[in-house]
């Protein structure tokens, strides 16, 4: 069959997929709002246990990675394959750094027994249990998205190297960029909800 190509359709499909992701996290935000209104004091105290410095650092590097992936798209549009690949590799490295930070952050929570079902946690009030339950679920699902992003970046890099993605056909890179902005955007909401609101 003749290969049918419609970049606008691909982008539209990606936007619809982004809708579904927003709804998925949207429901978690609803659950968060319900429990926060039920236990405002406990949520405030529990959120002070989180590492704001590490969270801020992760927010900053994630924002930078959104910029580098956007720059990578512009580079390929201008036909600069090498620059596009370099920028994409920077994005990839940042994604990995984000996950490493997350690992250490989670690790310290486990150390203090604040993991779901952890001994320390179960001795605390309902509000605290719910806060940490939500913290792990929300950042956990977000981390899975980062991981998928890493996979996508590797795939796109390989395609770029083989010239399957080039100046006139870069929809894969563009959609991966869209996906990455979504992952970034969700973090922009998670960060204040979990770390900052007091």
């Amino acid at each position: 069959m003749i290969e049918h190509r419609d970049d606008l359709a691909s982008k539209m499909g990606m936007w619809l997929f982004i809708f579904t992701e927003l709804l998925l996290f949207g429901m978690l935000f609803v659950v968060y709002a319900v429990y926060r209104s039920m236990h405002p004091e406990a949520f405030k105290l529990a959120s002070e246990e989180l590492d704001v410095v590490l969270g801020t650092f992760n927010t900053v590097i994630l924002l930078i990675s959104s910029m580098t992936v956007a720059m990578s798209i512009t580079s390929i549009q201008k036909g600069n394959k090498k620059l596009a690949m370099t920028l994409l590799i920077i994005t990839l490295v940042i994604a990995v750094v984000f996950l490493v930070n997350k690992y250490f952050e989670w690790g310290s929570k486990f150390e203090y027994g604040f993991n779901p079902g952890g001994e320390e946690l179960l001795q605390l009030g309902h509000g605290t249990i719910l806060f940490f339950g939500l913290y792990f679920v929300m950042t956990g699902i977000h981390a899975i998205h980062i991981l998928i992003g890493v996979g996508l970046f590797i795939y796109v890099l390989l395609q770029l190297r083989k010239d399957k993605i080039h100046q006139t056909d870069y929809i894969w890179l563009e959609n991966t960029g869209l996906y990455w902005h979504l992952v970034d955007l969700i973090w922009i909401f998670l960060f204040p909800l979990l770390y900052l609101i007091h």
Binding site: Y35, P116, I129, L130, G133
Partner: peptide, 16 residues
């Protein structure tokens, strides 16, 4: 994992 979001014993709400 026993996160407690719907478990009344851990403060969760089954109606939710």
């Amino acid at each position: 994992l026993g996160i407690g979001i719907f478990d009344p014993a851990l403060g969760g709400d089954p109606i939710l």
